[in-house]
Amino acid sequence: MHMIQHRTVDVNGIRMHIAEQGDGPLVVLLHGFPESWHSWRHQFAPLADAGFRVVAPDQRGYGLTDHPDDVDAYTILHLVGDVVGLIHALGEEKAFVVGHDWGAPVAWHTALLRPDIVRGVAGLSVPPPSRGAEPPLVTMDKKFGGRFYWNYFNRPGVADAEFAKDPRTALRKLFHSASGDAPGDTKQPLVDADEGWLAAMPYPEELPDWFTEEDLDALTESFSDGFTGALNWYRNLDRNWELTAPWDGAVVTPPALYIYGDRDPVPSFPGTPEFIESLPARMPNLHRRPIELAGCGHWTQQERPDEVNAALVDFLRACA
């Protein structure tokens, strides 16, 4: 079996770094925030061994991929365009698309906008899109008085500077606080804008087995150019709401799979638990009921690689 290979491809007007392994039907793995291709390290060999060609990019604004300066260059249409361009740049007409955290909305929207090229779609942590009555930043500002982390991230330069002061510590705290290993109940991620987000997060002296010091080193290195590109995704939330108006009420039609942890803050966002319950009725080709992983936090495929890999292989084989 070949090891993971790295190269750069020209995609949708940017240079994109990818990691790849295996041969067979293409599976594109899309990371979330604040991550990189490396967040899929536990998936490469199992999926390649199962007969698939596995490709994980650093997405736009991350790692070794280009970081456009313009905030407007990070809309959901740009991100879907990157995935479509990547599939074609790899010489394929169709692919499976799998996403975690922010990568999940990119995967879901790729399936929604271009079902002709998506063999199947899987989302981890973040469920399929559901367009609310008003822009998401407006909604969360009203619900939480401007303290929700999306609204904090939307302040130009603020979170960028907070995380860039000590990227390794910032990532260490963020990963621990949203994991299933963090003590206490799952909480809504609220931020005191004057103190910053990291101030209230405990510093974990020891990292869990699934996220080693070496993993943290690799992740920290991928943010050597800062966090602005990654944060620009959040700064387009309301713009994305406007841009996706033509698909209001549309459903994801390719075969679909959704996996989440019961200690992940994201599935407990306002209205989300009820939405997840309704998914089987909403999605005509949902592979099976949403898979809930007990004790799993936000970093789904890293915290529970064996269960996620088994579910993905089952899903991919059923659709291949």
Rank of each mutant, 00 (worst) to 15 (best):
M3E: 13
M3Q: 13
R7D: 15
I14W: 14
H17E: 14
H17V: 06
I18M: 12
Q21K: 15
G22P: 10
D23H: 11
P25V: 01
V27I: 14
V27R: 13
L29P: 05
W40T: 03
R41K: 14
R41Y: 11
H42K: 13
P46Q: 10
P46F: 07
A48E: 02
A50H: 02
A50D: 03
V55D: 15
A56W: 12
G61D: 10
L64H: 11
D66S: 11
D66Q: 09
D70P: 03
V71A: 09
H78C: 13
L79G: 04
D82V: 10
V84G: 07
E93I: 04
K94T: 14
A95E: 07
V98E: 07
D101A: 12
D101N: 10
D101M: 12
D101Q: 12
W102E: 02
V106C: 04
A107I: 01
W108E: 07
D116E: 14
G120W: 08
G123E: 08
S130F: 12
S130T: 06
A133I: 04
P136V: 04
P136A: 09
L137F: 00
V138K: 01
T139S: 14
M140C: 09
W150D: 00
N154Q: 10
G157D: 09
D160R: 12
F163M: 15
K165P: 05
A178I: 05
S179I: 01
G180H: 01
P183H: 11
G184M: 06
G184H: 07
T186A: 13
T186L: 12
L190W: 03
V191I: 11
L198D: 05
L198P: 05
M201H: 09
P208E: 07
D209H: 12
E213R: 04
D215I: 02
D215W: 09
S224G: 10
T228L: 08
G229Q: 12
G229Y: 14
A230G: 15
W233S: 03
Y234F: 15
A245D: 08
V252W: 00
T253W: 00
T253F: 00
A256T: 01
L257P: 03
Y260C: 10
G261F: 06
V266Q: 06
V266G: 02
P267W: 03
G271F: 06
T272M: 14
E277P: 05
E277Q: 07
R282E: 01
R289L: 13
H298I: 13
Q301Y: 09
E307V: 12
E307S: 15
V308G: 05
L312N: 00
A318N: 12
C319E: 15
A320Q: 04
A320F: 02
